[in-house]
């Protein structure tokens, strides 16, 4: 049996295809019929707040959960009809570092290799290879409960790679990590995808999707609410933002009134921060024009600038609420 090759199934067949996935738990709809397509060798980020259905989607695609409706193929194999064959072709790293805390890093990886049926010798070699590759060599023979959170996550990711699977699923790979741990993890993931592995990752961090993914699918309440590249999503919400802070609160409303004709949407005023935000097109020309208008009105500014929309703007526009609010509540369990 082969552990290394996916079933090509006709050249450029996508590595992951899901159609109409539905999952309900006791009256709650976790997935309301989502479609996903991930071409081989690309990275798809499933982006959404906690409870959006990201983990449910990953569990269905990794054979852990059966959907109530819909179908899926991973690495050319039908997930519902041949789960065992799918498991030979995937690696999963879940939301919590699922490593045995009493086993050493080496023992954890060796065990996973044996359970992929790589054989004793190959399992041992592979464990050492991965520990070196993930900068865990020095900690290799210590029980993993002595590891830091970041090290444990790296070990968990290494476990997903033991059999060199062509398709990898990472469920919130950086939730709960500090900025340093997150940056380390990103680097590891970038190296991985440079090698041609297909990756589906879920995240609540907009920045993470922006940095790592070729394509982004935004889901909320079990439905796909937007998809595209990071740039495409940003375009959906309009071009740049003109952002400025007035020196005196009393002039804020007037600034909004005189600037409105320059924008492509209505300006949003934030009295607490004396700031104004307005979608614009035309770049530097618009900025110069805005400064001229404000100067003529005698409105003094503390700060002014143009910025490209972030994925936070995307999320806010699409769902009517910021993504970070939800993200904050999930840190508790992480």
């Amino acid at each position: 049996m082969s552990h290394h090759q996916s079933d090509p199934g006709g050249g450029a067949a996508p590595a992951i295809v899901a159609r109409g996935l539905v999952k309900r738990y006791k009256g709650v709809t976790a997935l309301a019929g989502i479609d996903l397509t991930v071409p081989q060798g690309t990275v798809l980020a499933l982006l959404g707040p906690n409870g959006a259905g990201k983990t449910t989607a990953v569990r269905i695609l990794t054979t852990l959960l059966r959907p109530d409706a819909g179908s899926a193929r991973v690495a050319g194999v039908d997930v519902l009809h041949e789960p065992r064959a799918v498991r030979r072709r995937i690696g999963l790293s879940g939301q919590y570092a699922a490593v045995d805390e009493y086993l050493t890093g080496y023992e954890n990886l060796e065990m996973v290799g044996r359970l992929y049926h790589l054989g004793r010798k190959r399992s041992r070699e592979r464990a050492r290879e991965l520990l070196a590759g993930f900068r865990l060599e020095e900690a290799a023979d210590r029980p993993s409960r002595t590891y830091s959170g970041g090290m444990r996550r790296r070990l968990d990711l290494a476990a997903a790679l033991v059999a060199n699977p062509p398709v990898i699923f990472l469920d919130e790979p950086t939730t709960g990590l500090d900025p340093r741990g997150r940056a380390d993890m990103w680097e590891v993931i970038q190296t991985l995808v440079a090698g041609g592995t297909t990756l589906l990752l879920t995240t609540q961090y907009l920045e993470e999707a922006d940095v790592l993914a070729d394509d982004i699918v935004v889901i909320d309440h079990g439905e796909v609410i937007a998809q595209g590249t990071a740039d495409e999503l940003k375009l959906q919400v309009g071009g740049e933002r003109l952002e400025l802070t007035v020196s005196e609160l009393g002039t804020l409303e007037r600034a909004g009134r005189v600037l409105e004709p320059l924008g492509v949407g209505r300006p949003t005023l934030d009295e607490g921060r004396r700031s104004l935000l307005m979608p614009v097109t035309g770049g530097a020309r618009t900025l110069t024009e805005a400064l001229r208008v404000l100067d003529a009105e005698g409105i003094a500014l503390d700060d002014v600038g143009l910025r490209r929309p972030t994925l936070d703007d995307v999320f806010l526009t699409l769902t009517g609420r910021p993504a970070e609010d939800d993200a904050a509540t999930t840190e508790v369990g992480a």
Binding site: L64, Y96, A98, V99, D100
Partner: peptide
Amino acid sequence: KKGIIDRFRSLPM
């Protein structure tokens, strides 16, 4: 609880 069963269940064992 720790997700170790998830890992085992995702393996071809």
